[in-house]
Design a binder for these strands. Sequence first.
RNA 1: GCCUCCCUAGUUCAACGGAUAGAACGCGAGAUUCCGGAUCUCGUGAUAGAGGUUCGAUUCCUCUGGGGGGCACCA
Length: 543
Amino acid sequence: MMTMTQILRAKLTQTAADLFEECKQQPPVVRVETPSDPKFGDYSTNLAMQLAPVVKDGPMRIADKLKVALGTVPGITTIEVVPPGFLNFRVAASWFTQQVRAILDAGKEYGASTIGEGKRVILEFISANPTGPMTLANGRGGFAGDTLANVLVAAGYKPFREYYVNDIGGQVEKLTESVIRRSFQLKGIKVDYPTDLYQGEYVLEIAKKLHLERYKLKSANELKQRVKGRVVKMMLTELQRVAAKKLGIGYYRWFRESELYEQRLDEKALALLAEKGLIYKQDGATWFRTTQFGDDKDRVLIKSDGEKTYFLADIALRWNRFRQRKFDCEVLFLGADHHGYQGRMQAAMSALGFEKKLEIVIVQFVRLIKAGQEVKMSKRAGNYVAIEELIDEVGLDAARFFFLMHAANTHMDFDLDLAKEKSEKNPVYYVQYAHARICSIVKKTKGLPTKKGAAISEPAALGLIKQLLRLPELVEEVAMSYDVHKLPFYTMRLAETFHVFYGQVRVIDHGTVNPRALELVQATKLVLAKTLRLMGVSAPEKM
RNA sequence: GCCUCCCUAGUUCAACGGAUAGAACGCGAGAUUCCGGAUCUCGUGAUAGAGGUUCGAUUCCUCUGGGGGGCACCA
């Protein structure tokens, strides 16, 4: 089903091309909006103003020409030209009311789009090191990534959720060392515990579960090797539990860094870069000339001690994703502390011929406020609040909604003391209440006589239909911009519009049902539930 | 010092370069003899400062001030 914006966009593009020579060569990008103020019509475009510098004429004159050339458009009753050059369209009430039927007919498919063209896109998000509990920022990135994946499905892409596990390397070594030392301490053996080891409580818990005394040790090194494997496994299991059970995120795959080395993809990546003369040795280390691709400085791939950097692994990983597994593109969600990583990563992509395949979304930190004071959090020091605790406190729906409301690139504050109180004032309940109310109404209409009602044309009803019609556009918008925060704002708007409608139009009137109003309410339920599902938030029947 | 993100109402956040800058919470005043008052209606109140580009700037550019995060052979 075509939305009115799609119809108008197509019409206007064609008309502009017919009218102006300049538009034949390069078709203008036509934007059609739904103005907030009804006096500007139901739909509006600024095309004439955009065209003014191109065709070198006044916006008002262009708007007039467009209006005349457009002629009549089905469903449109009037076209107004308004200074400084807007074209405002008014839609027939009958067209709107017909759309309700169309939404219900589309059912679960309503809002779906084909702009994705079946492209396979891999989404990597969270990917916190398996060295401690997930942070609030991890959760924030996780909700955004998961939601975007849902939207991409609706937009016709084939998304693939992946968690990249750094199961080897310095951080894992450090955690293992931490666990071993804690184990000794548990047995009453005095060992020192340097401050650069992991300080969190969870290290003790792992140490308790490990029962180190059962190991028959030959050497400290052997102990470490055997413990390491188990520590990683325990941490991984824990992360998987939190993701699935607490965050409500289902990953298709947990990809281990060690898999890359088992497949020798690091060597593959090195060979490719060497072939292009992009590698050199200095001070015993192997360097990659990322400066040739706009990076500030060259980067190390293999350290002088023979250890491979995560950067090398990340390059090998892209080879795996784009060449071996043939993904068309990737969206990578990174914490703000990694933003300096973008330059070298994109440089590597250019070097390997993967230009524009990798899109990086930087998710800004969550600042925790406690008793009016900012809490400085550090994973190593163990003095931070895990996302799991927050969800236990306020519930998954409230947590997801709250985090999703904030655009990824803005810093956000989270007041922990107000978490509980805030959860009751969380707009998610406002939205869910609208859904529950609708379910209740629909249930009550069962078995009641139906009144022969004319089409509904109350302003509140038309306003509600207009909101419902926004969903398909929203899905496309979010799929292209990754602005998932638009979803919760849309549901709030939709719920509000519904509540207003509820106050003005009766579905059940003195024991009889107005069938047109009932249809509209059912369509609203469908759209509300669909949007909430995209966000991973439940749509309760009652609350 | 260099790079980057942010600065909008008392608070937390919205607004592809468009028309009167929107919500939520807070505060103040109202609304229901029938569908869920976790609702609705009205009021309160903001673009950090100075320039620039533009028909038009919260949005783009420059400078200033304030805050977050980077600037490793860590991730």
